[in-house]
């Protein structure tokens, strides 16, 4: 498609560091190509700011192809912006019109404190994973042959779909309760669906949920916002599976 140039107004959350109070600042940015990604537009803004000897906007990003999960941003009131099943780095400016005003804010959650501008600390997710998001198998090269345990294709596919989570935190950001259950549910599901993960399923779900609660995430009220905003389309089924796993685990 032919690309064109648009002029936009940006309202961006600026915050010097974790301790400072932040506020929304307004910027005008002209000649943005609609073929640019949202982050390329921010690059352009930063180039402009640097040329004006102003501090550029800090934002998280890395792979810019929608898989590392590092980019975030709450754009016009939605996690990863208006397009569906897309991370911010793959959101393109063709989703916006000439003259649009675009709000850009960081993820908001007690468990994801703002570090600077649009950057938040998502290490809570790492700690949940450390609490049980693994199979306790050491490296040896002497495990059984990969094909010794057949896994029904259906289960393997469901496990993969759950494992496709990129840990970006959009679920937490878009949930009105700041709940992390889609993230945790996906991880619990991936292992619960595979024979290799079943062995320690009980301990895993109990530990991961305990850690999740300790981190200060809110509670799921099944609004379904997470599933809609998840750039990888992780299904609510995974939360249900976690609920089930946890229920069985806690009465065991």
């Amino acid at each position: 498609m032919a690309s064109k140039s648009i002029n936009i107004n940006l309202k961006i959350w600026r915050q010097k560091d974790a301790k400072s109070k932040g506020q929304i600042e307004t910027y005008k940015l002209d000649n943005v190509s609609t073929a640019s990604s949202f982050l390329e537009m921010l690059d352009q803004l930063n180039e402009q700011l640097i040329n004006e000897r102003k501090e550029p906007v800090a934002f998280d990003h890395d792979c810019r192809e929608g898989i590392c999960g590092m980019c975030s941003l709450y754009i016009n009131g939605r996690a990863h912006g208006p397009a569906s099943k897309v991370t911010t780095c793959q959101l393109h400016m063709r989703s916006f019109k000439d003259g649009d005003t675009i709000y850009v804010e960081p993820w908001r959650s007690k468990a994801f404190p703002v570090v600077k501008d649009l950057i938040v600390d998502r290490s809570a997710f790492d700690r949940i994973q450390q609490a049980g998001g693994f199979v306790s198998v050491n490296t040896s090269g002497r495990t059984i042959d990969a094909n010794a345990t057949p896994v029904p294709k259906h289960d393997a596919d469901r496990a993969f779909e759950a494992a496709a989570c990129i840990g970006c935190g959009a679920c937490v950001a878009s949930c009105k309760n700041g709940s992390a259950m889609l993230f945790v549910g996906a991880k619990v599901s991936q292992y619960a669906l595979l024979p290799q993960g079943k062995v320690e399923a009980t301990e895993r779900v109990l530990n991961m949920v305990r850690q999740m609660d300790d981190e200060g995430f809110g509670n799921c009220t099944n609004t379904g916002a997470c599933e809609v905003e998840c750039p990888k389309g992780i299904s609510l089924e995974n939360i249900a599976r976690m609920n089930r796993e946890y229920l069985f685990a806690s009465v065991k």
Partner: peptide, 24 residues
């Protein structure tokens, strides 16, 4: 508890694009 999980809210939030009114 859920209110506490988000001490600072969004300036612009478009909740109706991903949830039904009743659920919120």
């Amino acid at each position: 508890q859920n209110k506490k999980a988000r001490p600072v809210g969004y300036v612009k939030n478009s909740a109706s694009s991903n949830t039904i009114w009743a659920s919120r």
